[in-house]
Protein backbone atom coordinates (compact mmCIF):
# COMPACT_ATOMS: atom_id res chain seq x y z
CA UNK A 1 0.00 0.00 0.00
CA UNK A 2 1.23 3.53 -0.75
CA UNK A 3 0.36 6.76 1.08
CA UNK A 4 -2.87 7.23 -0.91
CA UNK A 5 -4.09 3.84 0.29
CA UNK A 6 -3.72 2.41 -3.20
CA UNK A 7 -2.36 -1.10 -3.54
CA UNK A 8 -0.27 -2.77 -6.15
CA UNK A 9 -1.66 -6.17 -7.03
CA UNK A 10 -0.40 -8.94 -9.27
CA UNK A 11 -2.73 -11.34 -10.97
CA UNK A 12 -3.25 -13.09 -14.25
CA UNK A 13 -6.00 -11.95 -16.57
CA UNK A 14 -6.92 -14.34 -19.33
CA UNK A 15 -3.52 -15.97 -19.01
CA UNK A 16 -1.50 -12.75 -19.01
CA UNK A 17 0.33 -11.59 -15.87
CA UNK A 18 -0.71 -8.11 -14.80
CA UNK A 19 0.52 -5.67 -12.18
CA UNK A 20 -1.84 -2.84 -11.38
CA UNK A 21 -2.24 -0.10 -8.84
CA UNK A 22 -5.78 -0.32 -7.49
CA UNK A 23 -7.86 1.63 -5.04
CA UNK A 24 -8.96 -0.51 -2.11
CA UNK A 25 -12.66 0.13 -2.80
CA UNK A 26 -12.61 -0.79 -6.48
CA UNK A 27 -14.53 -3.89 -7.36
CA UNK A 28 -13.10 -6.45 -9.73
CA UNK A 29 -15.83 -5.39 -12.17
CA UNK A 30 -14.65 -1.75 -12.01
CA UNK A 31 -11.08 -2.84 -12.56
CA UNK A 32 -11.97 -4.98 -15.56
CA UNK A 33 -14.38 -2.60 -17.27
CA UNK A 34 -13.16 0.87 -16.39
CA UNK A 35 -9.42 0.35 -16.04
CA UNK A 36 -8.55 -2.59 -18.27
CA UNK A 37 -11.30 -2.24 -20.91
CA UNK A 38 -12.31 -5.87 -20.54
CA UNK A 39 -15.94 -5.39 -21.48
CA UNK A 40 -17.57 -8.82 -21.65
CA UNK A 41 -18.60 -8.77 -17.97
CA UNK A 42 -21.62 -6.46 -17.81
CA UNK A 43 -22.81 -4.31 -14.94
CA UNK A 44 -26.43 -5.19 -14.22
CA UNK A 45 -27.02 -4.63 -10.53
CA UNK A 46 -23.71 -4.10 -8.67
CA UNK A 47 -24.87 -6.30 -5.80
CA UNK A 48 -24.50 -9.87 -6.89
CA UNK A 49 -28.10 -10.48 -7.86
CA UNK A 50 -28.04 -10.72 -11.64
CA UNK A 51 -24.85 -12.56 -12.63
CA UNK A 52 -24.19 -10.43 -15.74
CA UNK A 53 -20.67 -9.73 -14.45
CA UNK A 54 -19.75 -13.38 -13.81
CA UNK A 55 -16.05 -14.19 -14.33
CA UNK A 56 -13.86 -17.12 -13.32
CA UNK A 57 -11.69 -16.56 -10.25
CA UNK A 58 -9.25 -19.43 -9.92
CA UNK A 59 -11.63 -21.38 -12.13
CA UNK A 60 -14.76 -20.73 -10.04
CA UNK A 61 -17.58 -18.49 -11.27
CA UNK A 62 -17.99 -15.35 -9.15
CA UNK A 63 -19.90 -12.10 -9.43
CA UNK A 64 -17.07 -9.68 -10.16
CA UNK A 65 -19.13 -6.84 -8.64
CA UNK A 66 -18.85 -8.57 -5.24
CA UNK A 67 -15.09 -9.09 -5.33
CA UNK A 68 -12.84 -6.22 -4.31
CA UNK A 69 -9.90 -5.63 -6.60
CA UNK A 70 -7.29 -6.19 -3.86
CA UNK A 71 -8.76 -9.64 -3.22
CA UNK A 72 -7.55 -10.93 -6.57
CA UNK A 73 -3.89 -10.44 -5.72
CA UNK A 74 -2.05 -13.59 -6.73
CA UNK A 75 -5.14 -15.07 -8.39
CA UNK A 76 -6.25 -16.03 -11.84
CA UNK A 77 -9.10 -14.20 -13.56
CA UNK A 78 -10.70 -15.44 -16.75
CA UNK A 79 -13.41 -13.68 -18.76
CA UNK A 80 -15.05 -14.55 -22.07
CA UNK A 81 -12.17 -12.74 -23.81
CA UNK A 82 -9.87 -15.42 -22.41
CA UNK A 83 -12.09 -18.35 -23.25
CA UNK A 84 -12.15 -18.01 -27.04
CA UNK A 85 -9.96 -21.10 -27.58
CA UNK A 86 -11.43 -23.06 -24.69
CA UNK A 87 -13.22 -26.25 -25.76
CA UNK A 88 -16.20 -25.86 -23.42
CA UNK A 89 -16.62 -22.27 -24.53
CA UNK A 90 -16.45 -23.20 -28.20
CA UNK A 91 -19.14 -25.83 -27.76
CA UNK A 92 -21.35 -23.40 -25.87
CA UNK A 93 -20.76 -20.68 -28.44
CA UNK A 94 -22.02 -22.98 -31.17
CA UNK A 95 -25.05 -24.28 -29.32
CA UNK A 96 -26.12 -20.87 -28.01
CA UNK A 97 -26.17 -19.63 -31.60
CA UNK A 98 -27.77 -22.76 -33.07
CA UNK A 99 -30.43 -23.01 -30.38
CA UNK A 100 -31.35 -19.33 -30.49
CA UNK A 101 -30.51 -18.93 -26.81
CA UNK A 102 -29.47 -15.31 -27.26
CA UNK A 103 -31.86 -12.39 -27.49
CA UNK A 104 -30.60 -9.03 -26.20
CA UNK A 105 -27.34 -10.70 -25.21
CA UNK A 106 -26.61 -8.62 -22.12
CA UNK A 107 -26.71 -11.61 -19.77
CA UNK A 108 -25.10 -13.99 -22.27
CA UNK A 109 -21.38 -13.66 -21.39
CA UNK A 110 -22.13 -14.18 -17.69
CA UNK A 111 -24.30 -17.19 -18.41
CA UNK A 112 -21.68 -18.72 -20.65
CA UNK A 113 -18.97 -18.24 -18.03
CA UNK A 114 -21.16 -20.03 -15.46
CA UNK A 115 -21.84 -22.78 -17.99
CA UNK A 116 -18.13 -23.21 -18.81
CA UNK A 117 -17.43 -23.75 -15.11
CA UNK A 118 -20.23 -26.31 -14.95
CA UNK A 119 -19.09 -28.25 -18.00
CA UNK A 120 -15.52 -28.38 -16.74
CA UNK A 121 -16.75 -29.88 -13.50
CA UNK A 122 -19.46 -32.14 -14.87
CA UNK A 123 -19.19 -33.57 -18.35
CA UNK A 124 -22.68 -34.94 -18.33
CA UNK A 125 -24.80 -32.53 -16.29
CA UNK A 126 -28.45 -33.17 -15.52
CA UNK A 127 -31.04 -30.46 -16.07
CA UNK A 128 -30.96 -29.92 -12.34
CA UNK A 129 -27.18 -29.43 -12.43
CA UNK A 130 -27.63 -26.82 -15.16
CA UNK A 131 -30.36 -25.07 -13.22
CA UNK A 132 -28.16 -24.92 -10.15
CA UNK A 133 -25.18 -23.63 -12.11
CA UNK A 134 -27.23 -20.88 -13.77
CA UNK A 135 -29.47 -19.95 -10.87
CA UNK A 136 -27.44 -16.83 -10.18
CA UNK A 137 -27.72 -15.57 -13.75
CA UNK A 138 -30.87 -13.64 -14.53
CA UNK A 139 -32.24 -13.32 -18.05
CA UNK A 140 -35.34 -11.28 -18.81
CA UNK A 141 -35.63 -12.10 -22.53
CA UNK A 142 -35.52 -15.82 -23.19
CA UNK A 143 -37.50 -17.51 -20.45
CA UNK A 144 -34.37 -19.71 -20.12
CA UNK A 145 -35.81 -22.54 -22.24
CA UNK A 146 -33.26 -22.28 -25.04
CA UNK A 147 -30.44 -21.60 -22.59
CA UNK A 148 -31.00 -24.92 -20.82
CA UNK A 149 -31.21 -26.68 -24.19
CA UNK A 150 -28.01 -25.02 -25.42
CA UNK A 151 -26.00 -26.02 -22.33
CA UNK A 152 -27.35 -29.57 -22.52
CA UNK A 153 -26.48 -29.84 -26.17
CA UNK A 154 -22.99 -28.40 -25.62
CA UNK A 155 -22.37 -31.07 -22.98
CA UNK A 156 -23.51 -33.77 -25.40
CA UNK A 157 -21.25 -32.39 -28.12
CA UNK A 158 -18.26 -32.42 -25.78
CA UNK A 159 -19.04 -35.95 -24.65
CA UNK A 160 -19.05 -37.11 -28.26
CA UNK A 161 -15.73 -35.47 -29.13
CA UNK A 162 -13.91 -36.56 -25.97
Amino acid sequence: MNETGNLKIKFTLNGKPIEYMVKPNWTLLDLLRKELSVLSPKEGCSRGDCGACTVLLNGKPVNSCLVLAPQIDGKEIVTVEGLIEDKEFKALKETFIEKGAVQCGFCTPGIIVSAVALLREKGNPTVQDIEEALEGNLCRCTGYIRIIEAVKQAAEKLQKTS
Binding site: R33, K34, L39, S40, P41, K42, E43, T79, V80, E81, I84, L92, K93, F96, I97, E98, G100, V102, C104, G105, F106, T108, P109, I112
Partner: peptide, 21 residues
Protein backbone atom coordinates in the same frame (compact mmCIF):
# COMPACT_ATOMS: atom_id res chain seq x y z
CA UNK B 1 -32.13 -18.77 -39.64
CA UNK B 2 -29.54 -18.53 -36.92
CA UNK B 3 -29.38 -14.98 -35.66
CA UNK B 4 -26.60 -12.94 -37.27
CA UNK B 5 -26.25 -10.91 -34.05
CA UNK B 6 -25.73 -13.91 -31.76
CA UNK B 7 -21.99 -14.40 -32.21
CA UNK B 8 -21.02 -10.88 -31.11
CA UNK B 9 -23.26 -11.24 -28.08
CA UNK B 10 -21.84 -14.64 -27.12
CA UNK B 11 -18.35 -13.17 -27.38
CA UNK B 12 -19.37 -10.29 -25.13
CA UNK B 13 -18.22 -7.74 -27.68
CA UNK B 14 -18.72 -4.08 -26.76
CA UNK B 15 -22.15 -3.54 -28.29
CA UNK B 16 -23.92 -1.76 -25.48
CA UNK B 17 -23.97 1.89 -24.45
CA UNK B 18 -21.97 1.36 -21.25
CA UNK B 19 -19.31 -0.39 -23.34
CA UNK B 20 -18.75 2.90 -25.20
CA UNK B 21 -17.66 4.78 -22.08
Amino acid sequence: VSRPDALDKVLGRPLFTADKL
